[in-house]
């Protein structure tokens, strides 16, 4: 295997505040990786900001890169921002289901962390057509932006 100079990762998904991160314990060798959270990049901006307040320098990845880290056996813990949970599952930011399925497949422990509630379930379809205010997709493109998703309890055990 290639040497990525990274041996151990705590992987974070969703928008987390410094308060939410208080419960998180990382080993000395463990690096905090944060999924950026398209289309708003809120996680990449806010969760990383919360880490910096804790004196931890986080690493941002795109939302499609988590699988690589699991496949390489680098992820030791997964932390997911959760807005609501009961015995049937949890309501989380979109992308959490990917993390949960990967965590179960690779037998990595997963922790839900309390996050602020989103007021909308669907985002503006136009928000995925641009990046940081710059139009990317061609005119006429349709977008679909689920902001939250349900993660069934079977993936959270």
């Amino acid at each position: 295997m290639q040497d990525y100079k990274i041996k151990s990762i705590g992987l974070f998904h969703g928008i987390l505040s410094a308060e939410s991160l208080k419960k998180v314990k990382l080993a000395k060798s463990e690096r905090a990786f944060v999924c950026e959270g398209r289309p708003g990049l809120e996680a990449g901006k806010m969760t990383t900001g919360a880490f910096l307040k804790k004196g931890i320098i986080p690493t941002v990845i795109s939302d499609n890169m988590a699988g690589f880290l699991f496949f390489k056996g680098l992820v030791k813990q997964v932390f997911i921002a959760c807005q609501y949970a009961d015995n049937k599952g949890a309501l989380c930011d979109t992308g959490a289901l990917i993390m949960a399925v990967l965590a179960r497949k690779h037998k990595v422990p997963l922790t839900l962390l309390v996050a602020e509630h989103r007021t909308r379930f669907l985002g503006d379809p136009k928000s995925i057509l641009s990046f940081e205010g710059h139009r990317i997709a061609p005119e006429g493109t349709h977008g679909y932006v689920p902001l939250v998703e349900w993660v069934p309890a079977k993936y959270l055990k």
């Binding site: 398209r38 939302d63 979109t94 990917i98 997709a137 493109t141 679909y144 998703e149």
Partner: peptide, 22 residues
């Protein structure tokens, strides 16, 4: 992909990489 599928008169919707689970 969105561009060339549109050019081919296909119906295509763009999603974020994190939306595949949903």
């Amino acid at each position: 992909t969105v561009w060339e599928l549109t050019q081919a008169n296909a119906k295509v919707t763009l999603v974020a990489d994190n939306a595949i689970g949903s």
